[in-house]
């Protein structure tokens, strides 16, 4: 089933700009989709709620933006540098944060990202309140021109599909199985001889690196890196996307990203109400649809195909 959905979506992505969909919108949604996939890797498969993923997204976008604009490196090298920066930050933040679980983990990651935010406010290269503006789209490999939205579109689709396949591979690998075991019962995983902290840290770093990839790619698309990328509402937004789509589902975060970005586009005219509406969506989902859209659909599908009632509760 999954395979048909995946090929269908890929085909849709490839033809989308030819059937009248605005490519920049899809590219932006794909970047946030990658961000949400990265976040979901932690919450959905290790059970760790990070409230500070904006620090990886934002710092990668600053690094990539600075390198593209000031140093003039080619697109792929700038992105790699951004991902590296996010990875290093991920090692440091993860090393500190995995010392606590649950609610404390969320508060610690939030505090760490606030620290990164204050650093970005003060650091000279980030441009303070203005951010880094009109970042040039340097050519890919130094030869392929990315100035046209259409060329860039296929580059971004390639990155996003690559990131998606990577996460799919991680989740379905033995490593991913251990992560799920940790989510379900950490003490048990420890007793089976797994070094739980090392698994958690690796998952955290992978998630940080992917969030960085999302931030770096976003800079190439939007040509802007600003404090918004690294501030706490961004961490809230990625949580919202994952919640809307469905925590712990493969397609959920991407769908959630498309919905939230579309919502922001349509509601851009009414200013502060966007915040209120996002808050209301948060409340409704937490109270009534904790599995998210994809999660609820999958539950519905299961119920129709397996009429015999099962005693197993879905993991939440």
């Amino acid at each position: 089933m999954n395979r048909f959905v995946a090929f269908g979506l890929l085909a849709l992505l490839l033809v989308a700009p030819w059937i009248g969909v605005y490519p920049v919108f899809i590219m932006k949604a794909l970047c946030f989709g990658m961000f949400a996939i990265a976040f979901n890797l932690l919450i959905g498969y290790v059970g760790l709620l990070s409230f500070g993923h904006a620090m990886f997204f934002g710092s990668a976008s600053y690094i990539t933006g600075h390198i593209l604009k000031v140093w003039g490196w080619s697109a792929e090298l700038s992105i790699i540098a951004g991902v590296l920066a996010a990875t290093i930050l991920g090692v440091a933040a993860g090393w500190i944060a995995i010392r606590r679980q649950g609610i404390y983990f969320a508060m610690i990651t939030l505090a760490l990202s606030q620290m990164v935010y204050f650093f970005c406010v003060q650091a000279p290269f980030t441009g303070g309140e203005d951010g880094i503006q009109s970042i040039p789209r340097q050519p890919l490999f130094g030869i392929i021109d990315l100035k046209s939205d259409m060329t860039l579109y296929y580059f971004v689709v390639a990155i996003a599909v690559g990131a998606f396949l990577l996460v799919y591979r991680i989740i379905h690998s033995p490593f991913g199985q251990v992560l799920k075991a940790i989510r379900e019962n950490e003490a048990r995983a420890t007793s089976l001889g797994y070094n739980v902290d090392r698994y958690k840290l690796l998952a955290f770093v992978l998630s940080a690196a992917l969030a960085g990839l999302a931030g770096s790619t976003k800079v190439l698309v939007m040509q802007l890196a600003s404090l918004t990328d690294v501030f706490w509402p961004m961490s809230g937004e990625v949580i919202l996307m994952t919640l809307v789509g469905g925590i712990g589902t493969i397609f959920g975060p991407v769908l959630g990203a498309f919905i939230v970005i579309a919502m922001q586009n349509y509601l851009a005219g009414i200013g502060e109400w966007v915040l209120v509406i996002q808050g209301v969506v948060f409340v409704i989902i937490v109270l009534a649809f904790r599995r998210g859209i994809v999660g609820e659909l999958m539950a519905l599908w299961d119920r129709r195909n397996k009429p015999a009632p099962t005693a197993v509760q879905p993991a939440e």
């Binding site: 409230f51 996002q278 808050g279 209301v280 409340v283 937490v286």
Partner: peptide, 20 residues
């Protein structure tokens, strides 16, 4: 439920109150 849902719910209310 898990403590995390309380955090997420109250975060939603932060957005609502601050936005208003």
């Amino acid at each position: 439920l898990d403590h995390l849902y309380g955090l997420l719910l109250t975060f939603g209310f932060v957005l609502i109150f601050e936005g208003m």
